[in-house]
């Protein structure tokens, strides 16, 4: 059985048949062309090595996607473990008597009366994209999956192997930082 099952895989055709599909799956999660390309290539390499494990129960594409999903978790773990610069700026005191209170210079301030007009300005997208890119990769990834791709919380948690409270902490930190970034560079600029 294990010998004949290999006949159902055709690595020579993988790139032609599945590269775009796998790339689309990946780019909607990692949002960076080079990173997505590398992950897709790594997936093909890993699949090549693991050919003997293919039992023919799932389609070739489904099997490749299952390997891709592992690669995306690996990527998330890698960007999650980069210490130091990978943290967002704190918006709230994290200890002492004022724990959980706003840090004054990070707290919201009035944006004035022109907000609606500023939302409609085309330039907004450029500034917002820059603010998102400025987030540490882990925060940008989870934020985009939840807000731009609008994936279900449960699905993101499963895909990245994180808890929902973990997800909300990440979303919260991303959104408070984005608010501050847009306040400084757009709404009060």
């Amino acid at each position: 059985m294990s010998l004949s099952s290999n006949h159902m895989l055709n690595p020579n055709k993988w790139v032609t048949l599945y590269a775009d599909y796998l790339y689309n799956y990946t780019i909607s999660r990692v949002s960076n062309h080079d990173t997505a390309k590398d992950i897709v290539q790594d997936t093909f390499f890993a699949a090549l090595k693991a050919q003997d494990n293919f039992q023919g129960k799932a389609s070739e594409r489904t099997w490749l996607v299952s390997i891709l999903k592992r690669k995306i978790i690996d990527h998330y773990r890698k960007i999650n473990s980069i210490k130091g610069k990978a943290e967002v700026k704190m918006n709230f005191y994290t200890d002492g008597e004022r724990e959980g209170e706003w840090i004054e210079e990070r707290a919201p301030t009035d944006w004035g009366g022109e907000v609606e007009k500023k939302i409609e300005n085309e330039e907004l997208k450029v500034v917002l994209e820059k603010c998102i890119d400025y987030l540490p990769e882990k925060y940008a990834m989870v934020f985009r999956m939840k807000t731009i791709q609008q994936f279900e919380t449960e699905d993101i948690c499963k895909e990245l192997e994180i808890t929902s409270s973990n997800l909300w902490v990440i979303i919260h930190r991303a959104r408070t930082q984005l608010r501050k970034c847009m306040e400084d560079n757009w709404f009060k600029n």
Binding site: W111, I119, L124, K125, L128, T147, I148, L178, M182, F187
Partner: peptide, 11 residues
């Protein structure tokens, strides 16, 4: 709420 609007435009 304004930020959510911006994210939707961006999306």
């Amino acid at each position: 709420q304004v930020m959510t609007k911006c994210y939707h435009i961006h999306k």
